[in-house]
C-alpha cells in the first residue's frame, strides 16, 4: 500500500503512466475551473477570485507538467550515467501530479483571499490540509525523476531541486508572456 502511494512508478511508467496522468490532468483542470484553482507554475496552486476561460486552466496544467519534463530531461541528459527514456520521464511526471486533483477539490471550500489581513481560520485549516497533499506530490515527482533516470541519493535530490526551480521559473515566465496574448 505504502509502495503504491509513495513509489507507484515501481509498477507503472511509460505510455501507461502518461495516459493515466493525462486523464487525471484533464479531470483536474475541469475541477480546477469550477473551484477557480490555478496551478500556474510547476509547483503552484492558488485560488483565483475571477473565473478565467477553461482553456487557461488546461494550459496551466500542461505548461506546468511540460516544464518539469523539459527540466528533468535536461538534468538527466547532463547527469544520468545510464540510458533513460523521455516517455518514462513524461509519463511518471504526469501521474505524479495526481494529488493536485485533491487540492482542486478542497479549494471548493477555500475562499479567494487577496488581502493577507482577511485570512480566516477556515483558510488556514484548508491550507494545512493541502500542505501534506502538496508534499506528497513533491515526493511523487522526485520518485518519478529518480526511477526514470536511475539517479539516487543526495546527488539526485540536489539535481531534482534545481530542475524543479528551473521548471518553476520557466513555467511562470511562459504563462506570464503568453496568457495575456490569449485572453486579450
Amino acid at each position: 500500500m505504502n509502495t503504491w502511494l509513495l513509489r507507484p512508478f515501481t509498477y507503472i511508467a511509460g505510455s501507461k503512466a502518461l495516459l493515466a496522468g493525462w486523464i487525471v490532468m484533464l479531470i483536474t483542470s475541469v475541477v480546477a475551473y469550477f473551484s477557480k484553482t490555478h496551478f500556474d507554475g510547476a509547483i503552484d496552486a492558488h485560488v483565483g477570485a475571477t473565473l478565467m476561460p477553461y482553456f487557461i486552466y488546461l494550459l496551466e496544467a500542461f505548461i506546468a507538467w511540460g516544464s518539469m519534463v523539459l527540466a528533468c530531461y535536461a538534468a538527466a541528459a547532463i547527469f544520468a550515467r545510464t540510458s533513460f527514456r523521455l516517455i518514462d520521464i513524461a509519463g511518471t511526471l504526469a501521474l505524479a501530479r495526481a494529488p493536485l486533483l485533491l487540492i482542486a477539490l478542497i479549494n471548493f471550500a477555500m475562499p479567494a483571499t487577496v488581502d493577507p489581513t482577511a485570512i480566516t481560520p477556515m483558510v488556514i485549516v484548508l491550507a494545512l490540509i493541502c500542505l501534506p497533499i502538496f508534499i506528497w506530490m513533491l515526493v511523487l515527482m522526485y520518485q518519478a525523476f529518480s526511477v526514470s533516470v536511475n539517479l539516487k541519493g543526495n546527488k539526485a535530490v540536489i539535481i531534482f531541486i534545481v530542475a524543479l526551480l528551473v521548471a518553476e521559473v520557466f513555467s511562470k515566465a511562459l504563462m506570464h508572456f503568453t496568457f495575456p496574448l490569449m485572453t486579450s
Partner: peptide, 13 residues
C-alpha cells in the same frame, strides 16, 4: 514481474 520498465532497467544497470 509486474514491475515498470525503468524499475527493471535500473535493476539491470
Amino acid at each position: 514481474l509486474g514491475l515498470s520498465y525503468p524499475t527493471v532497467r535500473n535493476r539491470l544497470d
